[in-house]
Simulated assay, not measured.
Amino acid sequence: MMIMLDLQSETPIYMQLKNKIIEGIASKQLNPGDPLPSVRNLAQDLGINMHTVNKAYQLLKQDGIIHIHRQKGVVINPDGMPEADDSYVTLLKEQLRPLLSESICRGMGEEEILSYCKGIMEEIKKGGDKT
């Protein structure tokens, strides 16, 4: 899986990295049990600080998305992604609300917003990144 980061983005690099790994899992480019590069190797490959990679990995570990083993290294959770429980749904709603509110303020209608959501979902399922 090729990870492309936007160093000019307002989104912190560690969040971009976390999001790209999750998207890789969603698009089936990464599967349960697949290894990820070590912190040092990924930082070198991407030309970013090791602490940035470590922060992304720690967030993924906290969310149950990856496991970090001393012998095996970093792997995608062999049991798969955690289920979308009530706390995740609450978080999803909290994150969507401001985006939807701003979209409405900017004159976007429900059908247009849903069309973008559907398009993005299709891109992810096809393994593409059109951002």
Rank of each mutant, 00 (worst) to 15 (best):
V39A: 08
G24P: 02
A84R: 15
E122L: 00
E10A: 14
L100N: 09
C117Y: 14
N41M: 05
D79M: 05
K20R: 10
D34Y: 01
N54G: 08
V53W: 03
G47E: 09
Q29C: 00
R106H: 15
G109V: 15
R40Q: 15
G73R: 05
I21Y: 00
L17H: 01
D129I: 01
C105V: 04
G109Y: 14
L99H: 11
E102F: 06
M81S: 04
T131C: 11
N19I: 07
D85A: 09
S87W: 01
N49I: 00
G73Q: 06
M50S: 12
K72L: 04
T11C: 04
P98M: 09
G73A: 11
L46M: 14
C117G: 10
R40K: 08
N41H: 04
L36H: 04
L42Q: 06
K28E: 11
M2D: 12
K55T: 11
I104W: 15
V39D: 05
R106I: 04
K125P: 02
I65N: 11
L59W: 05
L60K: 05
N77M: 12
V89M: 06
L114S: 10
G47L: 15
I104N: 03
E94F: 09
D6W: 06
L36M: 07
K125D: 15
G64I: 13
T52E: 12
G33M: 06
Q16N: 08
M1L: 05
R106E: 11
E94Y: 12
K55F: 02
E10V: 07
C117A: 13
M15F: 09
M2H: 04
N77L: 13
S38N: 02
L114I: 03
R106F: 14
S27A: 14
D86G: 02
P12I: 08
M4H: 15
D34K: 00
K61G: 03
L36E: 01
L100C: 06
S27C: 14
Q29D: 02
C117M: 15
P12L: 13
G109K: 13
Q16G: 07
Y57V: 08
I21G: 01
I48K: 04
R40N: 05
Y14P: 00
P98K: 09
R97C: 07
H51M: 08
Q29T: 01
L30H: 03
R97E: 13
L5T: 00
I68Q: 11
Q71R: 14
S101Y: 06
S103L: 12
V89I: 10
E102G: 13
N77T: 10
S103D: 10
S115M: 11
G24C: 04
L42R: 01
E123H: 13
M50A: 14
D6K: 06
L96M: 10
P32G: 14
K61Q: 14
K72T: 00
L59I: 04
I104F: 10
P12Y: 09
E110T: 15
G64R: 13
E111C: 06
E111D: 06
S87T: 01
Y88Q: 01
Q44N: 07
S9C: 05
D45E: 10
L17V: 02
D6T: 09
N41Y: 03
A84Q: 11
K55N: 06
I76S: 02
R106K: 11
C105N: 12
I48C: 02
D129P: 00
I68V: 13
P12K: 09
K126N: 08
M108G: 03
D86S: 07
M4T: 10
L30C: 08
N31C: 04
I76W: 03
E123M: 14
P82N: 12
